[in-house]
Write a protein that binds this DNA or RNA. Structure first.
Lengths: 257, 257
DNA sequence: GAGTGGTCTAGACCACCTA
DNA sequence: AGGTGGTCTAGACCACTCC
């Protein structure tokens, strides 16, 4: 650290900056344990509180993770699972695997998902508009899932389907009644996916999402609002993906129209 | 707050949860000032430090913003600027405006950008591979910009162009030498944009990005690595957008192939 | 000048992990 | 048992804003 008496930045920032430098220059390898807070406090002639503050800054940047009783560690970057614009492409049918499972397999992981709940609901205003259904009735089927790669929760997924389409298809059951999954069901009903519309945002997770996705501090989520459009341009399904950004990315390889 | 003696969560969390509830239930309107830290400390029978901690949790979630000397305020949500998959579409040529400017105008804002620097550089390994250029020479032109909506910085944009394409086009000057912008220049050189590939991630900003984008705590950035492909499938330009997620979203409306 | 948030200290107790 | 992070306290001083 440079001349402390001249430096007007808060001490906790200075310590954070110094440690960040050390990490980025490779003095603390990925996964390595940093000196304890008490050791750092002595080194920087600061109170332990102040060191804790500095480490919280780095944790918030996603650079380090504290583990209670063990120490503070340089965060190990995970390879990203890339959800692609081709994730619904018919070309993936041949393998019988969804793109998520393919990507997991490519990384030597086992992908799976759990059904949280399935319910027939009244849509809110916006959803009713998007799906061209009535706002007054229980006109929509909602399915909520969590996707896992090995033991790590990766996405929180909610799918909304107009009841006129879901009706009588068995989509009220956990088990999806089609070998090509939910989109196989839609095709049988005469809705061939022709275009998709994905609206993407990023934000910090809600406390509920922190629980579901087992998120540590400093990890934002990516939210994708996806709409499927059929051969007539009619929307027939909306899905929201909430993804942990430390394990996920998106990829759109598309023609310019 | 419920029975404090039974609650095992840290006091700062309890305070944060309580205040979050109050905000979400509308007891503190958007933009409203919360009670001062000293008042809250008294109300919750806690040290001011503890209240400060609680407010930092909410700030990190993007719910409130502290303003030094003024108070802590409920964050006002900004309307999002949506960068679309059609942002390069020839159909926007007629207006003579870029999609960014159109979107700004729609929100009653004035869009503009500043050139930070323009330089001929040696690409790193990954970039060399993406652009099919040599890693050993100064084979790439880099242009760095910041985009603004009114006074707010919105994107940090870096564009890399193979020097063999940029050479002799005037792209070394600040002023882009074509009425249709930089992509007009590429077309004149025989590269018609036929496909794009966008790789999207989200993360917390680096301290440098915090400075450039004037970011407050709890706001992640969205990073888009964009590649333009010409009629032969050849990549001829890579652009990185770093966008503040509180003012930006993405939108992909694309065919299923 | 009064009020606000920003930061720091020194010490304390707790919960968790490793051995 | 001993070390580590998690949290809280009480008090202090500072920088900023507003009147």
């Amino acid at each position: 650290m440079t001349n402390q008496t001249e430096d007007r930045r808060p001490l906790s920032r200075q310590i954070a900056d110094e440690l960040r430098n050390e990490i980025e220059s490779g003095q603390h390898a990925s996964g390595a344990k940093l000196p304890s807070q008490r050791q750092l406090a002595e080194r920087f002639s600061a109170a332990r509180n102040t060191v804790d503050e500095a480490l919280k800054i780095l944790a918030q940047e996603g650079l380090v993770v504290a583990e209670h009783g063990r120490g503070v560690f340089v965060r190990v970057k995970q390879p990203l699972i890339r959800l692609g614009s081709d994730r619904y492409s018919p070309k993936h049918r041949e393998t019988g695997l969804s793109p998520f499972l393919i990507e997991c397999a490519r990384q030597g992981k086992v992908g799976r998902f759990e059904v949280l709940n399935i319910e027939r609901i009244k849509p809110n205003k916006e959803l009713a508009k998007q799906l061209h259904v009535s706002e007054k009735a229980k006109s929509v089927l909602r399915r909520e899932n969590v996707f896992y790669a090995d033991a790590d929760p990766v996405y929180r997924v909610t799918t909304w389907i107009p009841w006129r389409i879901a009706q009588g298809t068995g989509l009220l059951q956990e088990e999806v009644p089609h070998q090509y999954g939910i989109h196989g069901v839609f095709e049988e009903k005469g809705h061939v996916m022709t275009r998709i519309n994905d609206e993407i945002t990023a934000r910090m997770p809600t406390p509920e999402e922190v629980r579901y996705l087992n998120l540590s501090p400093g990890i934002p989520v990516i939210e994708v609002m996806h709409t499927s459009l059929d051969q007539d341009g009619e929307p027939y399904e909306v899905t929201r993906f909430v993804m942990r950004s430390d394990m996920n990315g998106l990829s759109y390889n598309v023609p310019v129209e």
